[in-house]
Design a protein around this nucleic acid. Sequence first.
DNA 1: AGTGCGATTGACT
DNA 2: GTCAATCGCACTA
Length: 215
Amino acid sequence: MALRDDYLENPAKRVKLRIRRLLRRELPLSTIYLARFLIGKTIVREISGARLAGRIVETEAYLTGDAACHAFRGQTPRNKSLFLGPGHAYVYFIYGSSFMLNVSSVKAGVGEGVLLRAAEPLEGIDVMQRYRGTDRLVDLARGPGRLAEAFDIDRSLDGVDLCSRGPLWLGTSVREPARIGESVRIGINVDADRVLRFYERGSPFISGTRKLNVS
DNA sequence: AGTGCGATTGACT
DNA sequence: GTCAATCGCACTA
């Protein structure tokens, strides 16, 4: 793939793409629509003068009444950011090893959100390679824990407004996504049959098995 | 205060 | 393909 080869030949290249912050009113009010909408949009991390950017290629929706949603049993100290209203970061720690980044949805007081599961590195690739300890472009943010590690995301960013100037925000698309595929969510044991995972078909940057990418 | 487990990852057969 | 590591949190008492 030409795009990938270009990246590999220029690993330290510091491109600066034209990306503007998404306005809160641009976010779909439905969490499922938001999960689809975010495919192809960008996630931008500003840290000590550097800018990291990735193109979101895989998401999952977590809904009210959904037993797999962390807010299923109401608000707790951990999940409170899910209830902040649309466009806030909900960051949590899981398996003793990984952070996960979600975008809160709907409206204040409602605990729904979208998990960002994978991104295509765009800017700050050399910095991501350092955080991740690998040079392989497709492995930098392929999977939710890897995405958080590549972007240096931890609980200090929990609750951050993703539609405001700050250390982490959502940006416009730099390239329209290919056709969007759907599947069941990955790693879920309850409400496991619901089709709430979305991804850019054909992207080498998505997680999951071949089997899940056929739909 | 104790317990069970998870929206995963990396190492290994 | 399989599997153990690892720890914060929610739940029970």
